[in-house]
Design a binder for these strands. Sequence first.
DNA 1: TCAGTGAGTAAGTAATTACTCACTTTGTAG
DNA 2: CTACAAAGTGAGTAATTACTTACTCACTGA
Lengths: 218, 218
Amino acid sequence: MTPNNIFNEILSFQSVKLTMKQERIVQAAIQLFAEKGYSNTSTAEIAKVAEASEASIFKKYGSKEKLLLSIIVPSLKEFFPTMADEVIGPISEANSTFEGFLAAFLKNRSEMVIANKEIFQVIVKELIYKEDLKNELTPYIFEAAASRLARVIDLYKERGELIDIPTHKILKSLLTFIGGFFTSHFVLLNNESVAEEVIEDAVRFIMHGIGIKTTSMN
Amino acid sequence: MTPNNIFNEILSFQSVKLTMKQERIVQAAIQLFAEKGYSNTSTAEIAKVAEASEASIFKKYGSKEKLLLSIIVPSLKEFFPTMADEVIGPISEANSTFEGFLAAFLKNRSEMVIANKEIFQVIVKELIYKEDLKNELTPYIFEAAASRLARVIDLYKERGELIDIPTHKILKSLLTFIGGFFTSHFVLLNNESVAEEVIEDAVRFIMHGIGIKTTSMN
DNA sequence: TCAGTGAGTAAGTAATTACTCACTTTGTAG
DNA sequence: CTACAAAGTGAGTAATTACTTACTCACTGA
């Protein structure tokens, strides 16, 4: 079975409405995977928490791995592509400065991640491990998020708001920091919210760093 | 057994010189843990790769968990405290500017991590999962690395090289970016080296961000 | 009313897991 | 050479693992 067929199969799980039992199974799996990791969670435990039988898991999902993917894959489309078309576009149009865009973007995505924090934790924790999964999903993530952010960067660069260095370099620094930001807040520290001030601090750091401003003209 | 006793027990493993077989076991464990993760690696597999018997593992280490800790704990002292006393001090003394310090620091720590890349990967991957381990080690890491970095920040702040905001805010931004830097390069991308240019880019970002320099006096 | 269908499950199974025990081999001090 | 301790191991074990099978039940359309 090719990767594409696998993806379509996984996505088909959500197309038919889930029964109550199936919903309980998915919720139990999300909770346990986020808490203890995929490998340390047995199907027996998932069934117990969901108050269902183990066989029900396999009837619907076929394997433990597909249950994991049925959680991860559809959510990626929520974390990232939605981010591209429905988030990045409107946010950048509504903000005249890159600084404003950045603050709105970080706030918007933070709220999104917090609302789906356990799923986000599962994705981060498992993506680090699973080489195959990583290799299959990163091109997708890159296309969905990075390439659109690059366009926004180009836009504001033309307006003279951003430094004149290659866009890929700006993007790389930006993604490194944002990745660190989300990972530290929502995976390591497991925060429930992000204060306005924290976002302001992050934006200031991204825009101006920690050095004093030198008086140079452009 | 209290945490302290556990730590002392773990540290005692390295105090006596390892036999060749024991060395092979540790090397096999590092390799497999880094590649597939602790939970996905069986003691049988470690024994096979090490060309030793499973019983030898348990004779020396008692449990699979202690084998993991015997890899992680001593290395932390190499990654972090050495960093504090033997790295941060000399580097900051040898560099008159914070920018110079930062470049030297990033280069020095990158080389250190690359030389022990698999161990670094094991630490990152397991620290994300294991709540207990994380809670036990973070105060230690913080004391070793963060508090010393804070002093360096204070030093250069007094010299007027860094912006005048609370040190903990500077530190937080710095650690977020550096954490993202090391994780993306050496865990996600599994890089073998870091080009001079990459470090320069990172330093520039940390110092000045991606916004254009505004002409404001201080 | 009842055949057909999908949801759900109790009770398995073979394989794998971390770990143990009784034993042999090896290195070394006297 | 020998005695003894440490290093090393083959052959287990009970528990857990992901997964299967053969079944019941609840519902629905004709």
